[in-house]
Design a protein around this nucleic acid. Structure first.
Lengths: 228, 228
DNA sequence: CAACAGTCTTAGGCCAACCTAAAACTGCGG
DNA sequence: CCGCAGTTTTAGGTTGGCCTAAGACTGTTG
């Protein structure tokens, strides 16, 4: 119908908005103007303005004062950016010596500049990985994504051993701290104690004990450990 | 003095202008408004406007109706972009399966998006090459550049055997044609005939004979063949 | 159910980069 | 040395993307 945005016509800004809205609500629940503004570090009126334009272009639906939801077209464009971002992160870690705490900013710029061809070559060089260095699933080129739902570390009962499967965080300082505790996707962790309030969890990571607070606990997504 | 552009403050546009001006005149001779406009596919008034701003920022000197020259600061910024561009081209060819005729457009976008850190890692992965896939010299990180001056193919006398050392062309179709003749940096060529006018040159490339016209002849830069 | 806090939108501006149309300059040829 | 072609600049306008200030809405609460 609309001959708009045949893939390459989206501006950087538009790509950022779509990705942000997707990240605020992968399930499609409406995202609020202020959430978007906060995530993109912009003023609320800027968001309102852009949202209006994007909804005119059919990339999202906006109910004034109620929030925005991606249309199918908007969701596809957003997932394309997520795929790019995560593949770039994986590539930089694998081939250019980046650590997972430094890779985000670089990917944030590259995701807008790289061609589809280059993305697919990077994917091929990596062996078409399913997840990025943080354990986040990489959407397929066709737009499908397989979210492996784990449990937050804060929900694991005492005595249980789990495997960290995803570290849902992008701030370098936090990632560096997490890494300093020996925590990263694939690592096995045993919950040895829990506080009744504030979701404080004491864990054992390869013999070392650490106390994890609520925020970090939510960032660390776990799955059942595979073998004893 | 001016706290402007501490490296990362240049916009894409500004980077493009500086690189274009450098390319129009690496030696520093003034470049004209219309040359710049043509190279960047912009209107002349757009160039005048930008040139005025850039000269206010000390990146170039503009004598109205006479042309522009890069200042030392502008030249440094331009060489930085040239380094980025050529290293990116080399990296894409070496590690991501690009051919030299497809690599230019990709590099043109990436050169604005990649961090200095990433550029240096790419350089290291390549073993700090001195030239890119077209044989163009890659400026050093400190801003020095070593242009190996060759002779245009049109200037080689009959009977002489030379080595192609640089193919100074960026249009994919032309590069594809050149490659189809077996011509690329490092290839040895013997001049077997020359026409008195139009600079037509007949060459022998590994047993195949081709006639090269003036334009292509200038694109192909040659050096003395190393050994018989 | 009125008032208020908080959120969202409208109004009005700004800046970078582009454009076209018109005016100004340069340098050459008669 | 005047005029004219070609080049360059000025004038004025557009668009995307951002901003602050001010007004409109919503939902909660006394």
């Amino acid at each position: 119908m609309s001959p708009v945005l045949q893939s390459e016509t989206l501006t950087r800004s538009v790509e950022d908005y779509l990705k942000a809205i997707y990240q605020l609500s992968p399930e499609g629940r409406p995202a609020s103007t202020s959430e978007i503004a906060h995530l993109l570090a912009l003023s609320a009126p800027s968001v309102t303005g852009m949202v209006k334009r994007l909804s005119e272009h059919g990339l999202l639906e906006h109910i004034p004062y109620r929030g925005v939801q991606l249309t199918e077209e908007g969701r596809r464009a957003a997932l394309r950016m997520v795929r790019r971002h995560r593949l770039i992160e994986a590539y930089l870690v694998e081939f250019l010596g980046y650590s997972w705490d430094t890779v985000h900013a670089e990917a944030e710029r590259l995701e807008h500049a790289v061609s589809d061809t280059m993305i697919e070559r990077m994917a091929a060089a990596l062996g078409n990985p399913a997840v990025d260095p943080h354990g986040d699933p990489i959407p397929e080129a066709d737009g499908s994504i397989h979210e492996l739902v784990g449990r937050a570390l804060t929900e694991i009962p005492i005595g249980e051993t789990v495997e960290i499967h995803r570290v849902h965080e992008s701030q370098p300082e936090r990632l560096r701290y997490i890494a300093s505790l020996g925590l990263r996707p694939g690592v096995r962790v045993t919950v040895v104690d829990r506080q009744p309030f504030d979701d404080l969890v004491t864990i054992d990571v390869g013999g070392m004990r650490h106390v994890i607070g609520r925020e970090l606990g939510h960032v660390l997504q776990c799955v059942q450990a595979e073998d004893a």
